[in-house]
Design a protein around this nucleic acid. Structure first.
Lengths: 204, 204
DNA sequence: TCGTGTGAAGCACTTCACAGCT
DNA sequence: AGCTGTGAAGTGCTTCACACGA
C-alpha cells in the first residue's frame, strides 16, 4: 500500500500518534503493538495498522512496531524533521500564554518572532523575544519563517492574515473567532475555544 | 427527514453555522439561501440543505431560510437555549486569557467560577470572579455548573478531571496536552494548540 | 502463538439531480 | 425563475477476518 494516497483522516490522527509515541519513547519502550497503542491514542487497533500501512510496512509480526522508526516516519510525513520557526502575532494575554507554552518543541516548532500593534508592547520582551511592530511582518520572508499563530482580536485578524500571506507564510493557526480568506496555497486551521464549548451540552 | 438521527458530522458543523447566523442576524438580514450561506461557512450548498433538513423542513422555496428560526433550531439541538454556567480551572496565563475572552456568550456560556491550586491566586479577582481553592470544585454540583474548562498543566489535568467528574460535571473542554480518562457519560473535547500546528507543514 | 498487513465488506457522509413549491 | 427538500448514486473511511511471518 506504500504508493496509495494517505487519507486525510489518517493525516489528522498523526499528530496525536506522534505525541503518544514520543511519550512512549521517553519511557524507554522500544516496541509497541497496535493493540497496546490503541490504549494510548483511543483509536481501534485495525485502524492503527491500516494507518501505519499507508506509509509502508515495517512492523514486526508477533512483536509490533519499532517506536523510533514510527516517530521518524510520522515526522517525515508531516514534514516536522527540522525545526520550524514560527511567528506569533498578538502579544496580549492569549499570545503571551501561548508563547510560554512548552509543548511546541514536541512537534519541532519554535516561536522566534512576536508582533503586536500596541506601542506599549513593542520593544518589550516576552521570554527572550522582543516584540516587534506588525509592519515588520513583511520581513518574515527573509527570516525563513513560514508558519504563524494569529492571536489578535477578530476585527484585525483578516488584516493580519493578509500581511502574513504577503510575507510568504503558508500555514496559519488562527485563534480568532472568524474565518480568514487566504489563497489556496495557504493552509489555515482555526481554533475557536467558545465554538468547541458549543458542542458539549449536546452530548451531555 | 425530521425523525432521522442527525449525523455527528452535521452536529460538528452546527456551532459554526450558529456563529455565522448570529453574525447575519446582527446585520439585520432576515432570510438566507443555502447558496449565500455557503459563502459564510464554506460548506457546499447541498450539504447545508441536507443538514437543515435533518431538523425539519422550514425553508421557504424560492426565498431561503429564516435566520431567526434557524438560530432557535440550532440552539435547541445543541441545548444552548439557556445560559450555561461554566467553571474554569487554572488561573494561570492561559486561564486568565480565556476568562476575559468575550466570545463565550455568543453560545450562551458564562464563566461563573474560577479555581486554582496556587495560594497566591486564591482569593484574588479575575474580572469580577474571586478565584477559589480547587478543593471547592466539589461544590459545583450544588451550584448548577455542569460544564468546565481545564487550563492546568498536563501533570495535574487528570486529577482535576477526576474532581470535576465527582462534582457531576458532564462536559469538559480540556486545554492540556493529554488524554483525560472519564466515564462514558462525560464528554471531553481536547484542544492541544501545538498539535494543531503539527498538521500545517504537511499541507504547506 | 502472537501481531502484522490487507483485500473485501460494511458503513456513513457527501454530492447529485430534479420534482415541487412560492 | 429561484430555491428548497430528498431519494439515489457516489465516495471515502472504518471494520472485519484471516493468511502469513517471526
Amino acid at each position: 500500500m506504500r504508493y496509495t494516497k494517505i487519507p486525510s483522516e489518517t493525516i489528522r490522527r498523526l499528530p496525536a500518534y506522534l505525541r503518544a509515541l514520543i511519550f512512549l519513547d521517553e519511557k524507554s519502550r522500544e516496541y509497541v503493538s497496535s493493540k497496546d497503542f490503541s490504549e494510548y491514542v483511543h483509536v481501534k487497533s485495525p485502524q492503527i495498522r491500516k494507518d501505519f500501512s499507508y506509509f509502508g510496512a515495517f512492523g514486526t509480526k508477533g512483536v509490533g512496531y519499532r517506536i523510533i522508526t514510527l516517530i521518524e516516519q510520522i515526522k517525515g510525513i508531516l514534514k516536522l524533521e527540522k525545526v520550524q520557526k514560527t511567528a506569533l502575532i498578538g502579544a496580549g494575554k492569549l499570545g503571551t500564554a501561548i508563547s510560554l507554552y512548552p509543548g511546541f518543541k514536541t512537534y519541532g516548532f519554535e516561536i522566534t518572532a512576536i508582533f503586536d500593534n500596541n506601542n506599549n508592547k513593542i520593544g518589550t520582551r516576552i521570554g527572550e523575544i522582543v516584540v516587534e511592530d506588525c509592519w515588520n511582518i513583511a520581513t518574515l520572508s527573509d527570516r525563513d519563517i513560514r508558519v504563524a499563530i494569529v492571536a489578535v482580536p477578530a476585527q484585525s485578524a483578516q488584516e493580519t492574515a493578509d500581511k502574513l500571506v504577503g510575507a510568504g507564510v503558508n500555514g496559519i493557526l488562527n485563534l480568532s473567532p472568524c474565518y480568514l480568506a487566504v489563497p489556496k496555497r495557504v493552509k489555515v486551521t482555526t481554533i475557536d475555544i467558545a465554538m468547541e464549548l458549543g458542542i458539549l451540552p449536546y452530548y451531555a
